[in-house]
C-alpha cells in the first residue's frame, strides 16, 4: 500500500471528523431555536419565575450558547452525555444497552439483506430484461413507495397474529438465550431487510451492469473466456468498489429505518428511545442520540468512500 492512498484515506477520515464536528454544532443549534427554554419545558407553563430561575441556574442555562455548546461537546468527547431531563437518569448508561440492541438488530438485517441483494442483483444482470429483472425493478419501485410501518404491520398481522410463528412485540432482556433473542427480532429484522433490499438490489444491478458494458469485458469475451470467467476475472474486481459503496449507503439507510421499525415492534433500542424523548421534549437525550445516529451515518459513508479509494487501481498504482 503506497503513500498516496494513505494520504487520501487520512484526508477522508479527517474530513469525516470535521463533518461530525459541524454536525454537532448543527444539532446543538437546532435545539436552541425553541421559544422559551429547557427549564420552561421541564416545569411547564404554570412554573413560577423563581423556580424557573433556580432551574436555569442549576442547568447552566444563563451562560451564552457557545459556552453551553463547548461544555456539552466536552462531555460528549469524554463519554458524558449528560442527564435526561424527564427521568434524571444518566444518558450514557441508558443508551449503552439500547445501542447494543439496535446494532444487534441492524447487524442481522444486514447479514440477511446484503448477500441476498447482491445475489439478486447478479441474477437481474444475468437475465437482463427478462422476468427476474422486471420483477426486481417492480419490487424496487414498490419498496421505495412503501412506508416501513406498512411492511411492519403486514408482517405482524400475518406472521404474529394469524400464524403465530413469531412474537409481534420484540421484548428482549439481558441474559436472554440467543435462540429466543433471534426469534424476538425475526420480524423486525425481516421488516428492515425488506425496507432496504429492493433498493440495494437495484443499485447493485446498476453497478454491475455499468461494468459489464465496458470495453474490457468485451475484450475478455473476445478472448474466448466463459461467461463465468468473464465475470469472475474481469467484471468482479472492478465491480467490488461500487458494490461496497452501495452496501454502505444502504446500511446508512437501514440505520434510519431502525427508528420506525423499533417503534412498531416496541423494541428497546436507540430509535424508540429517541422517539420517546422527542415527545417528552427531553433535549439532552435528543441531542445525544441524534449525534450518535449522525456519527454512525457519517462513519458508513466514510467506509464507502475509503473502499472506493482502495479499490481504484489508479490510486493503488500511481504513475
Amino acid at each position: 500500500m503506497s503513500s498516496p492512498i494513505l494520504t487520501l484515506v487520512a484526508q477522508r477520515i479527517a474530513l469525516g471528523l470535521l463533518l461530525l464536528l459541524a454536525v454537532s454544532v448543527l444539532i446543538f443549534a437546532g435545539t436552541q431555536i425553541l421559544p422559551g427554554d429547557v427549564a420552561q419545558s421541564i416545569l411547564g407553563q404554570s412554573a413560577t419565575p423563581a423556580s424557573l430561575a433556580n432551574l436555569r441556574e442549576e442547568l447552566g442555562l444563563n451562560d451564552p450558547a457557545y459556552i453551553r455548546y463547548f461544555r456539552w461537546l466536552g462531555g460528549v468527547v469524554t463519554g458524558d452525555l449528560g442527564t435526561a431531563l424527564s427521568s434524571r437518569q444518566d444518558i450514557a448508561t441508558s443508551i449503552g444497552g439500547r445501542l447494543w440492541n439496535t446494532l444487534f438488530l441492524a447487524f442481522w438485517a444486514a447479514v440477511v439483506s446484503v448477500p441476498l441483494a447482491i445475489i439478486l442483483g447478479l441474477l437481474a444482470v444475468r437475465y437482463r430484461n427478462g422476468f427476474v429483472d422486471k420483477l426486481i425493478s417492480g419490487l424496487a419501485l414498490a419498496s421505495t413507495s412503501l412506508p416501513e410501518f406498512f411492511i411492519g404491520y403486514l408482517l405482524v398481522y400475518f406472521f404474529a397474529v394469524k400464524m403465530q410463528w413469531f412474537p409481534g412485540i420484540s421484548t428482549v432482556y439481558d441474559g436472554m438465550p440467543f435462540g429466543e433473542r433471534m426469534a424476538a427480532i425475526a420480524l423486525p429484522a425481516t421488516a428492515l431487510t425488506l425496507v432496504v433490499l429492493a433498493h440495494m438490489m437495484r443499485m447493485t444491478r446498476a453497478a454491475i451492469l455499468n461494468v459489464m458494458q465496458s470495453a474490457y469485458v468485451e475484450t475478455a469475451e473476445l478472448k474466448g473466456l466463459s461467461a463465468f470467467d468473464v465475470i469472475r476475472k474481469h467484471a468482479f474486481p472492478n465491480a467490488i468498489a461500487p458494490i461496497i459503496n452501495v452496501v454502505m449507503l444502504n446500511l446508512a439507510f437501514l440505520i434510519v429505518g431502525v427508528v420506525v421499525v423499533e417503534v412498531i415492534f416496541v423494541y428497546p433500542g436507540m430509535g424508540q428511545y429517541l422517539v420517546d424523548h422527542v415527545s417528552k421534549r427531553d433535549v439532552p437525550v435528543v441531542q445525544a442520540v441524534g449525534l450518535i445516529f449522525a456519527a454512525v451515518y457519517i462513519g458508513l459513508n466514510i467506509i464507502a468512500d475509503i473502499a472506493a479509494i482502495i479499490a481504484n487501481p489508479r490510486l493503488r498504482h500511481p504513475k
Partner: peptide, 16 residues
C-alpha cells in the same frame, strides 16, 4: 481470431 480495439485504453481491464 483475435481483436484489436479502437481504444485500447478502454479495452484493457484497469484492475490487472
Amino acid at each position: 481470431v483475435c481483436y484489436v480495439a479502437q481504444s485500447a485504453a478502454a479495452a484493457f481491464n484497469p484492475a490487472h
